[in-house]
Design a protein around this nucleic acid. Structure first.
Lengths: 147, 147
DNA sequence: TTATTGCCTATTCTATTAGTAGGAATTACG
DNA sequence: CGTAATTCCTACTAATAGAATAGGCAATAA
């Protein structure tokens, strides 16, 4: 499951994407429109700021803007950023190859290759939609291709 | 992420599948081979017993057997059983249609249809492999079929 | 110079997860 | 029998993560 925090982050970024090029968006607007607790959202946006996804302006008339073009931000990127990984098990995450606790030797694991498949398909779908897509039309035939 | 418990359940059932038709398998054997805390495994196996997946025999020479044929048990079934759902968000689970906390109205949600796609693909992959498969060769064309 | 707005760190509250404890029930075998 | 080996059950605990809040600092427009 995605954490509530990840979901909030996605919705907040979608909101900023919709207002892209229209100046800064105050927190209060996102809170009202997206049904997110205000204080919690500041924490999330700070985190996204540190990652370079949003920029903020303080003081009166302050608010947030999306730094990249909406089309540059894939939903998968946001989830990886918040959650660390998209995989269902530690040993199936891509980059810093983790291993599962209390597992059998990886060579004997009959779950791993399956979970790698799931991870790849999930990533393909989540990376096929960006903040520029109004609705996820998700052209499945773009990537991956079927054998 | 899958819970540790779900992973233990899958490994235990794989172990039982390997011994299918060879009489009952004692807990101690699974504990040793699969690296699972003994007491915890009894809890898990009881749960699987209540669901009809395993049958147990008590007393000396007791142990567990897999009730269905290995080919009848899909990995997806096990995960659904332990976790309740395969979806990444509540509103994308199939059967008893749940909704996400603190979300926007479902009609306005731009994440849901994407998450439904992920759920379907994930289910397709996880349901393409059963306890009879020694390694997940994952013939993707078996199930699901593409639109 | 003040009201408004975002920034940061720490803290709290709650639920879930992972695992343990202790004993009751069952059965093979001498 | 009776004893050892085994599963069963309920409850409990300990650790962790998730969700959110508190409270004060910093910046900035009017």
């Amino acid at each position: 499951m995605l954490s509530q925090k990840s979901r909030y982050a996605i919705r907040a970024l979608q909101h900023l994407a919709d207002r892209h090029g229209q100046g800064v968006v105050p927190l209060a607007e996102m809170v009202a429109a997206q049904n997110i607790p205000a204080k919690f959202l500041t924490v999330i946006l700070s985190e996204l700021g540190r990652e370079g996804l949003v920029r903020s302006q303080r003081g009166r008339e302050g608010g947030y803007v999306l730094v990249p073009t909406p089309a540059e931000v894939r939903i998968g990127d946001i989830i990886r950023l918040m959650r660390g990984s998209i995989a269902l098990v530690p040993c199936a995450s891509r980059d810093p190859h983790e291993h599962c606790e209390n597992c059998v030797p990886e060579s004997a694991c009959r779950l791993r290759s399956l979970m790698l498949q799931v991870r790849d398909e999930t990533a393909r779908i989540l990376d096929s939609v960006t903040l520029a897509d109004p609705f996820p039309t998700a052209n499945l035939e773009l990537a991956g291709g079927k054998p």
